[in-house]
Design a binder for these strands. Structure first.
Lengths: 189, 189
DNA sequence: TATTGTTATACTCTATAACTATA
DNA sequence: TATAGTTATAGAGTATAACAATA
């Protein structure tokens, strides 16, 4: 997905150095700000989670498996917004790394419950603190306004999530675009 | 339809408590909040900009071309974080749509300056308001705290951008991630 | 030799569908 | 027939390299 900075009120008065002007204008943009922050955070996260198979997404699976009692793959995918076909490979890798394991569901032999191994739970607990630290570093500029910002952010996110519940970021949106129109991205074939 | 939202419970009659617990935990997450907001905003933007070639990114090019005087493609790509090889195709489409045009640089015949046509400038001005409206809708929950939030957001973003200036979001793995596979090779010719 | 822009190719994701084994 | 999970294939998007025209 492409992020969308771009729009900004412009003062077309003195066009000095176009590059600098545009750069400043971009920084007033809402989408630009969101994108920068998310990218910065994502980068820190990916670095912290580089060694876990599947990166941040793999960690999410381990985290969910650590917190909950044996969700099956369907429930896991629904919660994390991961397609089941992708989840298969992801769990394959996590299982090979010894972080989770698939266990048969006695009540439904089609289903497989994903549980975290001890190594998985250890990893989850270890990385949680590191992730919180990364978050704090990004927000450090805010000083004592940090809690206020986080509160506002959560408020906006919860609101936005109610309007459009989908739990994976940075993924193309075409899902809920209403099956009526069939607006597909057209590419000059 | 690839994946469903997490709000869909399991089968009626079997209330899976773990799912709900994990969902609540996720909502305390910083990255989750950022992702939700950005995705929601991106979706609105993509819908508003669906008819412009290249979507939001194409619009960014038109917007830059409208605001500045004739940047060449290299400068454009650097500013927007678009690779020059991608930018070529993008401008091709925008030019075919009559929104921008490539003009020769008299001082350097290798370079081409990208300028917005009248149609491009009109499009830029028309969509700006719509985008602002979309932003306002997302932030509407905040009421009169909206300006405060935006101020904090800009502060964090500017700080993050200083640490890591790269102007495209949702594009994981840039250069510093890791020498996985092939790293940039030194020129030897 | 370096740089601007173009083109061609390979690789990474993701989506779509088909398949199995259960229910 | 429907569902949980798996596997295979195709597509979009991007990166990488090579190229031509200039500097």
């Amino acid at each position: 997905m492409s992020h969308d900075a771009a729009t900004t009120p412009n003062a077309p008065g003195s066009p000095d150095r176009g590059e600098q002007v545009a750069a400043d204008l971009l920084k007033d943009d809402f989408g630009w700000a969101l994108g920068v922050i998310l990218r910065r955070y994502s980068k820190a996260v990916e670095e912290l989670l580089d060694d876990v198979p599947g990166g941040a997404r793999g960690y999410q699976v381990v985290a969910s498996a650590s917190q909950n009692l044996a969700m099956n793959q369907g429930a896991l995918g629904a919660q994390l917004g991961i397609d089941r076909t992708v989840l298969t490979y992801l769990i394959d890798d996590l299982e090979a790394a010894g972080l989770v394991s698939r266990q048969p569901d006695p009540s439904d032999r089609r289903s497989r419950r994903v549980v975290a191994t001890e190594a998985g739970q250890t990893l989850w607990q270890d990385r949680r603190n590191a992730l919180t630290t990364a978050e704090t570093e990004i927000l450090s500029v805010l000083g004592n306004e940090q809690p206020a910002f986080k509160e506002l952010l959560q408020r906006v996110a919860t609101h936005a999530d109610r309007l459009d519940p989908l739990h994976n970021a940075c993924q193309v949106v075409e899902e809920l675009t209403e099956p009526r129109g069939g607006r597909r991205r057209r590419r000059t074939a």
